[in-house]
């Protein structure tokens, strides 16, 4: 509602800031980027996280189980700043490990088409542990009796997964989806550290754009409007998820 540059007195702006939201191409781009990032993040986290959880849940020795669980979860404990710096080295175009093993000379973070997918992969590596642990916990709540009953009824492994495991753990999957989406939608650190939103805004997220507007261009009023958008989007999407959940989440 105001124009304010942090230092001088705020000045009333009415709805100017909100008008600017619609006309500012960079905002639209940031919103699209963030949506792409968040959707890709939810799909990869839940999909691959589920496979990992199933893998770990299968018969394994206790020791291996502990080891694998810790290994998956470990990256999540490392702070984003450290993760981003390490990956920047891995992805370095001249002497990075990624290019070395792929015998390529790809400039991962500077390419307009590859930069966002690359960040999605890095984000996946970093936060998969969290989704994995949630899903694994959900998997462990599935009562063994149900499986046994299904087996007696002649259901094969696929059927048991589809009609027993999934419905029983659907509340967990739902929770993981909501949490992953909210987390991904607020993504900030890897963009700032690894690509600075570049190349040409291809990886700029909403939160990052808010920061740039508020603390680099000193348009605090506009930044506030942007963060309102963030709030509203997350609220709507989460509300939508809750509404749709009635169709598939087993109560």
């Amino acid at each position: 509602m105001f124009h304010w540059d942090l230092l001088s007195t705020p000045e009333f702006a009415g709805l100017d800031n909100f008008k600017q939201l619609v006309t500012d191409g960079a905002t639209v781009r940031a919103v699209i980027n963030t949506f792409v990032f968040a959707l890709a993040s939810v799909v990869t986290h839940i999909g691959i996280g589920m496979l990992l959880a199933l893998g770990v849940h299968r018969t394994m020795t206790r020791g291996t189980k502990y080891f694998v669980r810790t290994a998956y979860f470990f990256p999540f404990l490392v702070s984003w700043a450290a993760v981003a710096l390490i990956w920047k080295y891995v992805l370095d175009p001249a002497f990075g490990l990624a290019n070395y093993y792929l015998s390529a000379t790809t400039n991962w973070l500077a390419s307009p088409t590859l930069a966002l997918p690359t960040l999605i992969v890095v984000d996946w590596w970093h936060t998969i542990g969290y989704t994995f642990i949630i899903l694994l916990a959900g998997l462990q709540t599935v009562p063994a009796q149900l499986h046994e009953a299904a087996r007696v009824d002649g259901a094969n492994a696929w059927w048991r997964f589809w009609s027993v495991t999934l419905p029983v753990m659907s509340p967990t999957i739902f929770f993981a989806t909501v949490i992953t989406f909210i987390g991904a939608f607020q993504i900030f650190d890897p963009m700032v550290i690894m690509t600075q939103g570049g190349p040409d805004g291809a990886t700029r997220s909403i939160v990052q754009y808010t920061y740039e507007k508020g603390f680099q261009s000193f348009e605090v009023g506009y930044a506030a409007a942007l963060s309102l958008v963030l709030f509203v989007v997350i609220m709507i999407v989460t509300g939508l998820q809750f509404r749709l959940s009635r169709r598939w989440v087993h109560q």
Partner: peptide, 17 residues
């Protein structure tokens, strides 16, 4: 913000994007 705009543009040229 100005520094960022200048550097982003230059980066686009350097990388050949």
């Amino acid at each position: 913000a100005i520094q960022k705009a200048i550097e982003d543009g230059w980066k686009q040229v350097l990388t050949g994007n």
